[in-house]
Design a protein around this nucleic acid. Structure first.
Lengths: 170, 170
DNA sequence: GCTGAAAGGTACTTAAA
DNA sequence: TTTAAGTACCTTTCAGC
């Protein structure tokens, strides 16, 4: 690989301006047709479809997911949990990561710097359900030292959108 | 509305077992065909499609979004920010919510109980970009008192999936 | 290489049973 | 709800840039 390419290398394919426009559009609405996308990107529908397929195959687009209204599925409450662990034993840390990954109620989990070691975003139908999950957390994972919970009173914003700059420079 | 219905009422349509199965499936993969969904839910493809359309129209499915690989779009870093504000002036609070909603780099924002008032999940290509955003935050919003940042060293899990129980009882 | 245009194939939608 | 006809979309091919 040439140095010029290496400078832009992120572990995947090169993205030109069209790809970047497409990525921004499909993050907001992955359901629209190639024809409608072609109206917003100066490209023909078939070119759009070819590029989207390439982006999927390269793993730039990992998947497309339906986003539900939390209230309409009886799960209106979100919790933000900060977790502190005993870090002396790496194998317990790996176990905790697997545990978090396996829990459907855990939407997101970040391993972070700072006072907390993990930050979680958790959904639950009510406080009891949440408490039960946290009890299971400490029971199943002996290296969890303590955690603090913030109950979300309202959702200001909720998404996974990553803004993709159109200029190649990041 | 009868009391029996009111007990299950979440502000939207009633969901039977088939709907709930479908919702769980399309949250993981919204791209699969009705035929493939029909293999997993004991229903014909046309029944599947009709139900999905109803769920979209009722707003249970808000949208479908492409999920990108953060590394491949040059935005590998996540930050979890806890925000404390002066709460005396409600109009400033509303302004802050609008500001957060308008920032593309802010993926998620929760208004929470506890020591922090807001918890944010922010993406940025690097620390400088993140710092610039935080500077803009305090400049544009005079009621921001202080904030603490946790840099995500790794992503354990990342999604918006809400597990939908198949039994009507939550 | 990548594009746009046309043919073909697949999946969704609609209407009837 | 299933089935079948009709429609819309995606995919492939090919010629040209």
């Amino acid at each position: 690989m040439s140095p010029a390419r290496a400078a832009h290398y992120h572990g995947g394919m090169e993205l030109d301006r069209f790809d970047r426009q497409l990525l921004n559009l499909v993050q907001e609405d992955a359901g629209q047709t190639a024809e409608r996308l072609a109206e917003q990107v100066a490209l023909s529908p078939s070119a759009i479809q070819r590029r989207l397929r390439r982006l999927r195959e390269a793993g730039v687009i990992q998947r497309q997911a339906a986003v539900l209204d939390p209230r309409q599925v009886g799960r209106p409450t979100f919790f933000v949990v900060s977790l502190q662990v005993e870090r002396e034993r790496p194998e317990l840390l790996a176990q905790l990561r697997r545990w978090l990954g396996a829990q459907a109620q855990v939407q997101q989990a970040f391993y972070v710097t700072g006072e907390a070691d993990f930050v979680l975003v958790v959904t639950a139908p009510d406080t009891e359900s949440f408490d039960a999950l946290m009890l299971k957390l400490v029971e199943d994972n002996p290296n969890v030292r303590r955690f603090t919970t913030n109950v979300a009173l309202s959702l200001v914003k909720r998404g996974l959108t990553i803004p993709v700059p159109l200029d190649e420079a990041d």
